[in-house]
Design a protein around this nucleic acid. Structure first.
Length: 287
DNA sequence: ATCACGACCTGGAGGC
DNA sequence: TGCCTCCAGGTCGTGA
């Protein structure tokens, strides 16, 4: 998501023209009412924030107070002079891309936002696990409010990990996937971080020592830094806003490497299913 | 309050 | 070629 955010940055300052939405591609609860999306027309993209796996596209509407006398009356859903954010979660297969307005519309396109310069911002999501909403700029959306600290935005210290893990019987895997604990880690990066920290995914979080919490905090930072350096991790669907795949999948230590030798000890990487999710471990160096 | 687990979806890969 | 099964970067609701 951070890679997507960065590649979207050139769109800042663009003024939104026509807004089109599929209306039914995403299920109710995963998309706002059409009127809320339509009301973004005319707003200017002024910032793009990210917290965990959520992206917030901040949109400033021009104040209508001093508008020309000919200004037409708008529907009640019009944001008027208020500012809004377009909240986006990509789910598993979601893509947020900027393409020329004339480009053919991909299957499963759910939102198209004209950017006024001949380009369009499009949201495409085959599996429809993604999520869109329009919120007031300063609104604390429940999904975002419940997130724990983001390693890049807020920083995540070993002390935080150590303290939150006290009395947690959940496994380290579940602990790290819990977005309320740390925002932004997904299934790939959890496997990677635990391997780097030499921690077994099934270990109860409460068994973390201060030293292990330090190793884990460091590992998380390294995993994220490496992924960003390579433009994100594309196993299948992931692309940045320019439609380019990330190269990080080639640099993963364990994820997807079932049967391959561990880079540290040469033992065979094992794949196991934990909490219904593929989990990759080195049986030797994650004791 | 915390869990494990199924549900939500489409599509790509691999077996036969 | 086609049909089948399995698998997938996430989250939420349910029931124990």
């Amino acid at each position: 998501m951070e890679t997507v955010r960065r590649t979207l940055l050139p769109a800042i300052g663009k003024r939104i023209g026509r807004v089109w939405d599929s209306g039914q591609g995403l299920h109710m609860g995963r998309r706002p009412p059409r009127a809320k999306l339509q009301a973004l027309t005319g707003a200017t993209l002024c910032a793009i924030r990210r917290r965990g796996k959520y992206l917030l596209l901040d949109l400033a509407s021009i104040s209508p107070s001093k508008g020309p006398a000919t200004r037409p009356k708008r529907a009640a859903a019009d944001p008027g002079g208020k500012s809004h954010s377009l909240l986006v979660h990509l789910g598993m297969t979601g893509r947020l891309v900027i393409v020329p307005a004339g480009a053919p519309r991909a299957k499963h396109t759910h939102l198209v936002v004209a950017l006024g310069d001949g380009s369009e911002l499009r949201f495409v999501d085959a599996r429809r696990f993604g999520f869109l909403d329009v919120i007031a700029l300063d609104e604390q959306h429940a999904a975002v409010a419940s997130l724990g600290p983001d390693p890049l935005v807020d920083g995540v210290t070993a002390q935080r990990i150590y303290e939150v893990s006290r009395n947690k019987r959940a496994t380290l895997k579940a602990f790290l996937l819990d977005q309320r604990v740390i925002a932004g880690l997904g299934n790939i990066y959890v496997s990677e971080a635990l391997w780097r920290a030499k921690l077994r995914p099934t270990t109860p979080a409460s068994q973390l020592t201060a030293a292990k919490a330090r190793a884990l905090a460091a590992a998380i930072g390294e995993v994220i830094a490496n992924a960003l350096d390579k433009g994100g991790t594309s196993l299948r669907d992931f692309v940045n806003a320019d439609g380019a795949k990330g190269e990080n999948a080639d640099y993963l230590w364990v994820y997807g490497r079932h049967g391959e030798p561990c880079a540290r000890c040469n033992a065979k990487i094992r794949r196991q299913v934990l909490h219904g999710r593929a989990t990759y471990v080195c049986p030797t160096c994650q004791p």
